[in-house]
Write a protein that binds this DNA or RNA. Structure first.
Lengths: 177, 177
DNA sequence: GCGTAAGTGGAGGCTGCCTCCGTATATTTA
DNA sequence: TAAATATACGGAGGCAGCCTCCACTTACGC
């Protein structure tokens, strides 16, 4: 790839991240191209569809999440799982405007981003397995349950991290006495 | 209101419900007008903004929910609450394509639809209070918690009612052992 | 330096949004 | 029942964003 092409690619990615964060998935692509100092044609060559651009932006976020996952250290398996779920909430919230897309990527194996989730799945699987071993969580709990509820909470609480944490804890502790 | 106006109003509402269900909030208004056998001008007179049309469609759904709420009968307060939450999940799912709007209406007191929620709130408040009295749920649980989690689950499970029910039960029973 | 493969950018066709206003029709009045 | 009038209709038209296409420009290997 030529140097100018790479430069434009990066610029577009940056501006797209900003625009999607501010205006959601429907942000004007012409505006994004303009912000990146580039013509629409260039945008469309690098990212033939809006979806491609969204996915490219999300790829970066997955990286960040994987890094968080690797750095996660906690002895108590129950706590570790909770920390990981909270970290996920945090990242999903940071991916403002793309929450829905993220949920699709995680839940739908057809999604071209599904592969990117492998690292995250591995971390979840590991933490979940350990938590089950020590009897910290009910044995029928699945990764899918966790992924779904985390996205649901992230989506329904928008950017209110206090409520997110409360709902996560309600979920973990249970509501019926 | 003239008879023809009323007829067109109803037709538009019906077609809008169908279109939003099939294509989400972004469905083409011109197509909706066409489906209703009416010009765009007529659509815009009745519903000056897309939001107005969405809200009008939602008003109908609120009616349906309120009816369900009134018909709800169950002796055990814990079970009654669960039934009500399930019914809500069901209705939210039926309101395909408008889940996000519904969540806004419920969570945001500014929403012009917020008033419509009163009946539903009253039912929730009643069921929740009774469940607390009998000690069926933890005392710090709020209506807002329930509303938020129900919308989160409905959204994240799309139309998979089995998963919705499972997640609701996980929430109610708790996940940690 | 030069040739060319690779990349650029914006004009243009298309669709959907919303407004405006000339035309049509339901309802009232006589 | 027919005229008068208030009410409603509908589509043309201006605008914005989507995406394609291709004449022009530029980086880079020789």
């Amino acid at each position: 790839m030529r140097a100018d092409a790479r430069r434009n690619y990066e610029r577009l990615l940056t501006e797209a991240g900003v625009a999607f964060g501010e205006k959601g998935t429907e942000a004007s692509l012409e505006d994004i191209a303009k912000a990146a100092g580039v013509g629409v044609g260039t945008l469309y060559r690098h990212f033939p569809t809006r979806q491609d651009l969204i996915l490219a932006v999300l790829r970066d976020r997955f990286e960040a999440m994987a890094t968080t996952a690797r750095d996660l250290k906690c002895d108590d398996p129950g706590r570790a799982l909770r920390e990981w779920l909270l970290a996920q909430l945090h990242h999903i919230t940071a991916t403002r405007g793309l929450t829905a897309e993220l949920a699709v990527a995680v839940n739908n194996p057809e999604s071209p981003l599904h592969g990117q989730c492998e690292t995250l799945f591995a971390v979840s699987a590991d933490l979940l397995a350990r938590a089950k071993e020590t009897g910290a969580v009910r044995p029928d709990l699945t990764q899918a349950d966790l992924a779904t509820i985390v996205h649901g909470i992230a989506w329904s609480c928008e950017s209110d991290s206090v409520r997110q944490e409360r709902l996560l804890d309600l979920f973990l502790e249970g509501v019926l006495v």
